[in-house]
Deep mutational scan, measured.
Amino acid sequence: IRCIGVSNRDFVEGMSGGTWVDVVLEHGGCVTVMAQDKPTVDIELVTTTVSNMAEVRSYCYEASISDMASDSRCPTQGEAYLDKQSDTQYVCKRTLVDRGWGNGCGLFGKGSLVTCAKFTCSKKMTGKSIQPENLEYRIMLSVHGSQHSGMIVNDTGYETDENRAKVEVTPNSPRAEATLGGFGSLGLDCEPRTGLDFSDLYYLTMNNKHWLVHKEWFHDIPLPWHAGADTGTPHWNNKEALVEFKDAHAKRQTVVVLGSQEGAVHTALAGALEAEMDGAKGKLFSGHLKCRLKMDKLRLKGVSYSLCTAAFTFTKVPAETLHGTVTVEVQYAGTDGPCKIPVQMAVDMQTLTPVGRLITANPVITESTENSKMMLELDPPFGDSYIVIGVGDKKITHHWHRSGSTIGKAFEATVRGAKRMAVLGDTAWDFGSVGGVFNSLGKGIHQIFGAAFKSLFGGMSWFSQILIGTLLVWLGLNTKNGSISLTCLALGGVMIFLSTAVSA
């Protein structure tokens, strides 16, 4: 259960009878995928790494000078000259100064003066180019299975845990398959586009800190620079940016070097996208990844198990997540596992009318040892309800109150669905055939309105939902006002479609 501690969480529900669903994975976010007769899966884009970055340009932001020398000439005696002028490691300046009897010249006039100092770069920052084909995306998957609280967001041991898996995709191999043991396998067909235009970005490294910066900004930095990788004795261009020549006297000129420019660069980098280094690879934390999940090989585990009949206890007080759902960790005293956990939410304890829904599909106890633990997640209705676990006299209950409203949740879900469709863009549509167009249209309606429909009408039977949709269509056909007619027709059509397409 990876997503319960992530604030940016998206719930995606598969269409009834569908074998695939489109998701948008982004750094700092987590996606929970639910479908009829399929286990619930949490998917998170953990890291995006980039390798084989080529150094484009380096800037010196802290330097020192040494070996200063000057040469001067009297008027009419030609130009002052130093051998160091031809050495690229030196920074030199030529000027004219007033000369006369007082400073060793027989004539009054302008004399030539040249001053040089050896330039040494102490600290530099480097910009590297990123090729999209060198990106690698690491995705962690977790099935809502027989897990306890100690396994949440624990990325170790996934090789031997059938509840978890790690997959890596690249532009050259965008397809992967996550093996989930008894739950089958989940196929991923990803489109490795981060949403960032790397043709316009460089990877900047300064003092063990890293950013993504725009090329134009990078090339306009007014500091000494050299092109390409460091060859040991780089040729620094624009050395004068960190060196200041003071007022010249008759035979000498003082040279000083400016202080470190790291603070000024940090100020200019305010708002830039931060990154990290992992050995020789860069780690990015921006952008998104679009994936199509193929769920035809994914299956529920323990459908044929019998119900657990022994007593359950709450190991922890049920807690609310950031998303309005409830996490419950229970301990089973029996030894008759594997068995299914009898769990439901009810409005009252007399009729036990089921409300809400299970995020953890078909929760089971897989071990036959005593005191096995299991964590599950529920989506309670707004208002008061009861969490009921167990059967008969051994069942345990917990009162729950959820604040908020169904309308607010439906609106929030619609906005999130619209954002998801905007990110998917043209990849969500198939114009290759008439059937493809209608299929894409259905998927689009489901992406945007599916979660809201589930919130508003999830407790009704599909037949009642179709009746309401048919009534809206009838009202649309018999209303003389054009805008009201079109609105009723659209709402009725969407409702009829979703009542037959969205899983219960």
Rank of each mutant, 00 (worst) to 15 (best):
V388W: 00
S58T: 14
G404C: 04
W20Y: 07
M374R: 08
R175F: 09
A346E: 00
F218H: 09
P363W: 05
N172M: 09
R164F: 03
N371P: 01
A69L: 14
I484F: 09
K38A: 11
V143C: 05
W429Y: 03
L113F: 01
Q331P: 03
A451N: 05
A413L: 14
Y202R: 01
P192A: 15
L273R: 11
L204V: 09
S304F: 15
S483R: 15
M277D: 12
M140V: 06
A250K: 08
V494Q: 12
V437A: 11
T500F: 07
F438R: 00
M15R: 03
V255I: 15
R164S: 09
N163I: 03
I139N: 02
G100T: 03
V91P: 00
G324Y: 09
G29Q: 00
D430L: 00
G476I: 04
K123H: 15
K373G: 10
Y137N: 08
I341P: 07
D278G: 11
F457D: 12
W225H: 06
A178G: 01
F11L: 05
G469R: 00
N439Q: 10
D230N: 14
A178R: 02
Y202S: 01
I466G: 01
M125D: 07
W101E: 07
K373Y: 07
R164I: 08
E377N: 05
V114T: 13
T40C: 10
A501D: 00
M125I: 14
M34D: 09
S7W: 00
G271W: 08
M460F: 12
F285M: 09
S7Y: 15
L273C: 11
H398N: 02
T470P: 00
M374G: 14
V56L: 00
G442L: 07
T470H: 09
K290D: 03
K454Q: 04
R2N: 10
K373T: 00
T49C: 05
R420Q: 09
A418P: 12
R57D: 06
G492L: 00
L358I: 05
N8M: 10
S403G: 01
L293T: 02
Q36T: 13
G450M: 13
K38G: 01
D393A: 13
E370Y: 04
V97H: 05
L242K: 04
C74Q: 09
T194Q: 08
E367N: 01
E159A: 13
W20F: 05
K124M: 13
G104N: 05
I484N: 04
H401G: 01
E136K: 08
Y203G: 04
P363Y: 04
W429G: 06
Y61V: 13
T115Y: 07
V388F: 12
V391S: 00
S185L: 13
Y81I: 11
G28S: 15
F108Y: 10
M345W: 00
K394P: 05
D336N: 13
R402M: 04
S464M: 10
H144Q: 10
E240T: 00
T487A: 15
T115G: 05
T366F: 04
Q261A: 08
G184H: 08
H214D: 10
W236N: 06
K290Q: 07
V167H: 03
T48R: 05
A501H: 05
R73F: 08
A361T: 13
V213E: 08
L358F: 11
G392D: 03
L289V: 10
D87E: 15
S455A: 13
I65D: 03
S72Y: 06
H249W: 11
A452E: 07
T32E: 06
G450Q: 11
A501T: 15
S286C: 12
T160I: 05
W101N: 05
M345I: 15
M68T: 15
W211M: 11
S372L: 06
L212T: 04
S405Y: 09
A63T: 08
S72I: 06
R420H: 12
V415I: 07
G271C: 09
L378Y: 06
G279E: 14
N52G: 15
Y158N: 12
V41A: 08
S503T: 13
L180N: 10
I1H: 00
M495N: 04
D155L: 00
K246D: 08
R73N: 08
L45Y: 10
N134T: 05
T351M: 11
L378Q: 03
G459Q: 15
G408K: 12
G279I: 01
S129H: 01
V46K: 10
S51Q: 08
L269S: 07
V355I: 15
T427D: 01
G232N: 14
N478I: 10
C105D: 07
F314G: 00
M151C: 13
G157N: 02
V31Y: 03
W20T: 02
T335F: 13
Y59K: 06
V23D: 09
R73I: 07
S58E: 10
M206G: 01
G482P: 12
R416A: 06
T48I: 09
V21T: 00
V437N: 03
I1N: 03
C121D: 04
G482E: 03
G259I: 06
S7I: 01
C105Y: 11
S146T: 13
E13T: 03
V114D: 06
V355D: 00
V437I: 14
T353A: 15
A490I: 14
G18N: 01
T313L: 00
T406R: 01
V303S: 14
V256D: 01
L82C: 10
G111A: 02
N237V: 00
L376S: 09
L424D: 06
W211L: 05
A452M: 13
A80E: 07
R57I: 08
Q331H: 04
I396D: 01
K419R: 15
M68A: 09
F453I: 12
K443P: 06
Q465R: 14
V97D: 05
W236Q: 06
C60V: 03
D430N: 15
G279V: 01
T427G: 13
I221R: 00
A63D: 09
G17C: 06
D247L: 05
L424K: 04
S66A: 15
G232A: 11
K209L: 00
A422Y: 07
A422Q: 06
A63C: 09
G458T: 04
S385N: 11
C92V: 04
T335S: 13
G127F: 05
L456H: 11
A490S: 15
L242W: 10
E55L: 12
